[in-house]
Amino acid sequence: MKFLGLQRRTLALIAVVLPLLFLFIYVALRSGPLSPVAVTVGNAESKTIAPALSGLGTVRARYTYKIGPTYAGRVKLLNVHVGDLVSAGQVLGEMDPVDLDERIDAQQAAIKSAEAALRQSEAKQVFARTQATRYEKLLALQGTSEESTATKRQELAVADAALGAAREDVSRMRADLRALRAQRSNLRLVAPVAGLLIARHADPGTTVVAGQAVVEVIDPNSLWVDARFDQISAEGLAAGLPARIVLRSRRSQSEPGRVLRVEPQADVVTEETLAKVAFETQPSPLPPLGELAEVTVQLPELPAKPTIPNAAIRTVGGKRGVWKLDNEKLVFAPIVIGRSDLDGQMQVEKGLDAGDQYVLYSEKALTARSRIKVVEALPGVSP
């Protein structure tokens, strides 16, 4: 009797445990750690892409004119302020001439004195020539001595030399006067071109040295972006390519541009390629110099090759590749990646053929032994 009761209890326990065990195994295989990994898949398509380069830069002016005196002096006046538009030839300011005007007056007086001395020398030379000619005639008629004629010849030579020296003095003094007037003219700060005044480095009363800039003027039509691109992705960057420029202060709009030139010297520290990107049309209002800008350069379209989104790329064992579905089995296929566009589409040079099926997104990390379940979309992941 006791054995039969024990047997009945055992059978009852087994009847309860077995369904629970089967239920546990079912749940583990369906939704537990042993359940298939949900994945979304895609097919490699052979298509062309138009790659683009993205870089950062700063707004600069191609032409900047630093205007200042050629001689040391003190700023007398400035007629313009930062932000003013100036025209070509406009007088922006003037340096204090100090004693330069008096020196010009003194030089003019000296020239008048030298010109008087020149006229006197010319008169003496004419008289000496007349006398020498008369004595030559008298000598021919034996009306005078050879010594007297030689004396008149010597007087003529002295008069010619004095006249030459007087002329040299006048020429030298006139050249000095022109130099003083040029120096006086250089004290006027004149705009060489029409442009925008961007800086005043000195105020009236400030003493500046020769060559020091008092004001700076730029040509507003010469604005460009001094852009930097990573050398790894800079293949194909060339002058003439179209670009889009987004200024940091105008995130909602972009300006059309064009690559003006690629600098022949790269930055060896940051490993970047430098390029000048010019605006197609002058931005309005003008952006401040030094403002940051994002530059996107559109490269020529590439030939068709197998293309996949960069979200499918995985790294396994130090190699980059994709999980490829081969007869519904997972196989990791190392690939060689080519160029990509800004939408994340990447061309595959080797390792994947057009039409091959690959895993795009997975619920968790995959291995070669993972069981998978293909779904339309993963929760929280956009298709």
Rank of each mutant, 00 (worst) to 15 (best):
Y65H: 14
G164H: 13
D356W: 09
Q282E: 12
A365M: 06
T307I: 02
V209M: 13
E146K: 12
A304R: 11
P334E: 07
Q90S: 09
N221W: 06
A117L: 12
A202L: 08
P334M: 08
T367P: 08
L34Q: 12
L196W: 08
I67R: 09
G344Y: 02
I335V: 15
K305R: 15
A202M: 08
A354T: 13
T270K: 11
I313K: 03
V374L: 03
I337G: 03
A312N: 02
F332R: 02
L302V: 11
D99L: 10
Q120G: 05
A182Q: 14
A202Q: 06
P33T: 10
D84A: 13
S145H: 07
A44Y: 09
V209Y: 11
S222W: 05
Y65K: 03
I245M: 05
A194C: 02
L13H: 07
P300C: 02
A239G: 08
A311D: 14
Y358V: 00
E45T: 13
L141Q: 13
P303D: 09
V277D: 02
K324S: 08
Q154R: 12
D356Y: 06
G355H: 06
G355C: 06
A132W: 01
L118Y: 11
A44E: 09
V225C: 07
A234F: 02
E363V: 01
L20F: 14
R258W: 04
S370M: 04
L141N: 10
G55I: 01
A365I: 07
R244D: 13
G236Y: 04
R30V: 08
L23T: 15
K137R: 14
L289C: 01
E349V: 13
I67V: 15
V37N: 04
A194T: 15
V225L: 09
P300A: 05
S54V: 10
P69S: 05
W224I: 07
A194Y: 01
T144I: 06
F24A: 14
A191S: 15
K137N: 10
P51N: 04
L187P: 03
V269A: 13
L6V: 04
F24P: 00
T130M: 11
E328S: 12
G73K: 01
D219S: 09
M1V: 11
K350I: 00
T40Q: 05
R30W: 10
D96Q: 10
L156G: 02
K47E: 11
R8Q: 12
W224M: 10
L302M: 14
S46V: 11
K319Y: 09
L100W: 05
T315K: 12
D84V: 02
A194F: 04
A109R: 12
Y71Q: 14
E94Y: 08
G164F: 09
A15G: 15
V295L: 01
I308Y: 06
G240Q: 03
A162V: 03
A354R: 09
S148Y: 07
E147H: 05
R174G: 08
V316W: 05
S249P: 01
R62D: 14
S252Y: 09
L330W: 04
K124F: 11
V217H: 05
V259E: 01
T207A: 15
P306I: 06
V75Y: 03
Q183D: 14
A150Y: 00
S35I: 02
S370P: 08
A110L: 10
L78I: 14
E45F: 00
V336I: 09
Q125Y: 09
E271N: 15
M95N: 04
K152I: 02
D267Q: 00
